[in-house]
């Protein structure tokens, strides 16, 4: 039942337990218990809203930063990651295979704020060797959802 619950709420976290239970053909109390258990076990880590900020008046800059580091004695990747993800403006940190070590996603008010973060906070961490900062120009699809156009039903109203 877990995977099926997750598959639904991954796309719609606002769905009520009653409706969710109906969709899955499961008992309401059992579904509620399973969700509570997954929250406790950190399988479910939060409930977010997918926002297309481009359609608001809010100015936001999103940056993707490639970070190369040298892991030091007694301090593996995890420790370095921790030093990076503690910053509240950092939205995601991933350890990568390939040409660099971390992908750091950053949300800030302006490009200058991003520059400041990289210069003053990120680059000054001892283990950080180099950074390459990319700015997101436009989001087309996020979390499996196409952002740029609303879906339109072009079918005829009645079809036998």
């Amino acid at each position: 039942m877990r995977e099926r619950i997750l598959a639904v709420i991954e796309k719609n976290s606002r769905i009520g337990v009653k409706e969710l239970a109906a969709l899955l053909g499961e008992n309401e109390a059992a579904v509620a218990a399973e969700i509570a258990a997954m929250e406790a076990e950190h399988v479910i880590c939060g409930y977010h809203t997918l926002i297309n900020w481009d359609n608001t008046d809010e100015e936001k800059v999103i940056a993707l930063i490639e970070v190369k580091v040298t892991p030091q004695r007694e301090m593996g990747f995890d420790k370095i990651a921790e030093r990076i993800y503690q910053y509240s403006e950092v939205t995601s940190v991933y350890l990568m295979s390939g040409g660099y070590d971390f992908t750091v996603m950053l949300e800030a008010k302006s490009m200058r704020a991003v520059a400041q973060f990289v210069a003053e906070k990120l680059s000054t961490i001892d283990s950080v060797l180099s950074t390459a900062t990319h700015f997101v120009l436009k989001k087309y699809k996020d979390h499996g959802t196409v952002l740029c156009e609303g879906p339109q039903d072009e079918r005829m109203m009645i079809v036998p």
Binding site: M157, I158, V159
Partner: peptide
């Protein structure tokens, strides 16, 4: 609102 269609959405 139509629920009258006989083809996939």
């Amino acid at each position: 609102i139509s629920l009258g269609v006989g083809e996939p959405d």
